[in-house]
Design a protein around this nucleic acid. Structure first.
Length: 191
DNA sequence: GTGAGGATGCACT
DNA sequence: GTGCATCCTCACG
């Protein structure tokens, strides 16, 4: 079953936690790929100095101010994309960055499975996510969406830590808004 | 095993 | 022109 809009219309930190263990599905060119979400980060409101929305609404960040359940995909470091899903209510800029997934379906068995999608840039490369998917409605889209699962496995406790790569964000750099499954080998960084 | 440095394009001062 | 919600390679030991 797909996740519905109301799943994303909650407080961002809560959505970030609840997305762990859910499936991210990508269908493109007759091929289906599925990843189990094991690591997320919350970006919460215009006051969050780590968020792209902290400098106001621009063309790039406009989607974050919109309705929950839409994709925010941006291009960074000249060669990578990052995938987020917008949360909360219209007018309040917030999103959850999906940082790593465990490949379940549609991956190349020749590769080290632990390194296929263990990072925001790598998971976008694997799932063929680029800016053409920016502003996609993930509730309605046939090509990219979230699915319910049986849930987090027993013993897979959720841990919280500081977000990665946001040291410039003052006091917001230390907010424990990165969530991941304890001991899971698919997270991008064990901290 | 660890750490430094470079690649690279685009949004925004 | 600046700096980035990253990743890979190559040293080093």
């Amino acid at each position: 079953m797909r996740l519905t809009r109301d799943f994303f219309e909650r407080p961002t930190v809560e959505v970030a936690q609840r997305l762990l263990g859910k499936a991210l599905v990508r269908v493109s060119g007759g091929q289906r790929k599925v990843g189990l979400i094991v690591e997320t980060e919350a970006y919460v409101g215009g006051d969050d100095l780590a968020s792209h929305a902290s400098r106001g609404k621009t063309q790039r960040t406009a989607v974050m101010f919109g309705q929950a359940g839409f994709a925010y995909v941006y291009f960074i470091y000249g060669m990578y994309h990052c995938f987020n899903v917008v949360t909360e209510r219209e007018g309040f800029p917030a999103a959850v960055l999906v940082r790593s997934v465990e490949p379940l379906e549609g991956f190349d068995k020749g590769q080290n499975i632990y390194k296929i999608a263990n990072g925001p840039g790598k998971l976008c490369r694997w799932l063929m996510i680029d800016r053409s998917l920016n502003e996609t409605d993930l509730i309605e889209s046939k090509g990219l969406y979230f699915e319910e699962t049986v849930g987090i496995l027993t013993g897979e406790e959720i841990l919280a830590g500081a977000r990665i790569g946001v040291n410039y964000a003052g006091s917001y750099a230390f907010k424990p808004w990165r969530f991941y499954l304890k001991g899971n080998r698919f997270v991008s960084k064990d901290v």
